[in-house]
Nucleic acid binder design. Structure first.
Lengths: 377, 377
DNA sequence: TTGTATGCGTTATCAT
DNA sequence: ATGATAACGCATACAA
């Protein structure tokens, strides 16, 4: 296309190797460091322009004439050059890196949130760096510090149950951040997510509306987990308004597995007190275990017992009975969080955050409460 | 503890602000750029040593006397300093970044692989950057280029069905890489994973051994996916050895969902040819769908039909019947891949790769084939 | 053991 | 519109 003699210039450039006379004339006789990779100045030389111009071609294209721009772009392609991120970061004081701390990748809801953020950031040339805390606040703090060292421009952390030092560090270094997954109107942080408390209020009221008065709860570990705590609080507050409470024997706390769900139902069913007519689970995994164990114990669902989950796993729709649950678009949460942070970086002053709705999906596993034995005919 | 007068030195340092006389004496009158954050030279000044010494304290501690080391460490803490990654990367030509490209985070097997790699790399101070290709070779290539720009020191990519340019780029820039998830002895790449072909040979032989002679297959999209292609090839090769093949009507290719599994069984059962006695699925999701639809259609499992999956999802053990499947430790694959790459970076010349075993878990969903109608009593 | 001086690859400032 | 050159924050070869 262009008549520019790249071949010849390329030759000139390539002959300028360390063992050529040109190299011998180099300012210093020291051993050359560096990666040996093509650098911006090589492109400048080949294109016959200054390094400043090459830089402009990629950062402020409008300020460069079309002819020169094309020459530079050709040279860059010919040399297979791309900018070195470290050099860029150092000179521009912009790292083009953002970070996210999640509890674990084993949980689909966090994995999809990462996907959403990554997609949104990538569209703006920002690389997302991921850290997992394994539900350990100390690890979360370490990860955040590592990310600050990397020069992250923005951060997202799941939940707000973190050491104050974590948020202090973020503020000290003026790194915009957002709390994701959880949402509270009166949170001191910008947050993007849903209201765990309200979601479980809604679910509890669904069951209350069906006539249930005796509840059991199977839930993930509440320690260091504000989302789970909020869910439990939502259940308790709603029951309390109706003069009800969860018996200690009917509150099981344990890992998010089918096995835990099964164990829990067995222990609840064997307890010496009155059996619950409904079991609310912290998520679908646990609920699936309860459903499975009910089958084993010959408990009719929902005739004898109603069961609810959270997350709306695909398998929940395939079970018999199908599982009543709630769905949250976690991919969307990730996208919104990234968008929010990008807005802050752009100097816009966006909302305090963004609330995503948790949607109740009523299916077969929840139904009217059996008439309580104590309620006279 | 230390009698070193940090307070005083800190004061000196802090008084050395831009509007102080000291600042006025600065070599240049230009506007100062930079982040305004504490930098290494601040620590050096406060500790009363040269910048080289501060650097040594963190990179070659042995070369620094204990007294000086302590002074520097105190100063760093007092100033809340930590090294800037971009500066480090530029000066040392080591980025301390590694990358991994996976198809999607939606699949647990890739998510856990990322976890394993991240843990292993983090233990060595290396940050893992994640990229998702969405099963698109073009996206994978773009991601790899972005990572090269970031100066990744090592890379992992899932599978080997990638554009040659991808591997060319990696080789051109001398970035050690490994293909994960898939393993072939005669692969041109270092690979850490399992032999998809062999795994499905084993599964097929399990069914052959049970007397099955008529097979259907429900599998994920084979396009651009060498792992899935290998699985299908393993089935075909094994059947062929027994003079068998999968009828076109009995080969369903589609997305990895329960819904696809259900659709597939329905279409297979409605086909006008002889019905299969066994259905092999590309993974557990699909198999769960088949199992569910079989229940709907009143097909006895395994009496009338055997079903197998792959991945060993927890739910598979809770189904009735329980699902015959294979398990691979993908977290381990991630860890081994990271270890392999670290070895290469350390100058060790490790094995060509590492093979992980896929373990067959025979459960209730696979059983003896019903006596074929054509086999005379 | 410690300090001095220079370079890493890019961007930004200023001058032309 | 383009060029010359000084930062950016740190590490390292070499001198002391």
């Amino acid at each position: 296309m262009s008549g520019f003699p790249f071949r010849r210039l390329l030759f000139q450039l390539m002959s300028d190797t360390p063992d050529s006379p040109a190299a011998a004339r180099t300012q210093t006789s020291r051993v050359r460091r560096g990666t040996g990779r093509t650098v911006l100045s090589d492109v400048a030389k080949l294109a016959g322009v200054s390094t400043a111009t090459v830089s402009r071609v990629y950062n402020e294209p409008d300020k460069v004439s079309a002819a020169v721009r094309e020459r530079v772009e050709h040279a860059a392609v010919a040399l297979n050059w791309f900018p070195n991120a470290a050099g860029r970061a150092l000179a521009s004081t912009r790292s083009h890196i953002a970070g996210i701390i999640i509890p674990t990748l084993d949980d689909q809801v966090f994995a999809s949130q990462v996907s959403g953020m990554q997609a949104a950031f990538a569209a703006r040339g920002i690389t997302l760096v991921l850290g997992c805390s394994n539900y350990d606040p100390a690890q979360a703090l370490v990860q955040v510090r590592a990310m600050l060292a990397r020069g992250v421009e923005a951060m997202a952390v799941v939940g707000e149950a973190h050491p104050p030092e974590l948020f202090d560090a973020l503020r000290l270094y003026r790194v915009p951040y957002a709390v994701t997954y959880a949402y509270r109107k009166d949170s001191p942080h910008d947050c993007i997510g849903f209201d765990n408390f309200a979601a479980y209020v809604q679910m509890t009221e669904h069951l209350i509306g069906l006539g249930h008065r005796s509840f059991a709860v199977c839930i993930q570990p509440t320690r260091d987990n504000d989302r789970v705590q909020a869910r439990l609080a939502g259940i308790r507050a709603t029951l309390e308004r109706h003069g009800l409470a969860v018996r200690p024997e009917h509150l099981c706390e344990g890992e998010s597995t089918i096995a835990f769900g099964r164990r829990s139902l067995r222990s609840i069913w064997q307890a010496s007190c009155e059996r619950p007519s409904a079991i609310m689970c912290g998520n679908d995994h646990i609920a699936l275990g309860v459903l499975r164990e009910a089958q084993e114990l010959g408990i009719a669902i929902p005739g004898e017992l109603s069961v609810t989950g959270f997350d709306d796993l695909e398998i929940g729709k395939a079970m018999r009975p199908t599982l009543t649950t709630m769905r949250v678009d976690t991919y969307e949460i990730g996208k919104l969080a990234a968008q929010h942070l990008l807005d802050v970086l752009d100097g816009k002053r966006p909302q305090h955050g963004h609330e995503v709705r948790a949607v109740l999906h009523i299916r077969e596993s929840s139904g009217p409460a059996r008439r309580a034995a104590t309620a006279g005919g």
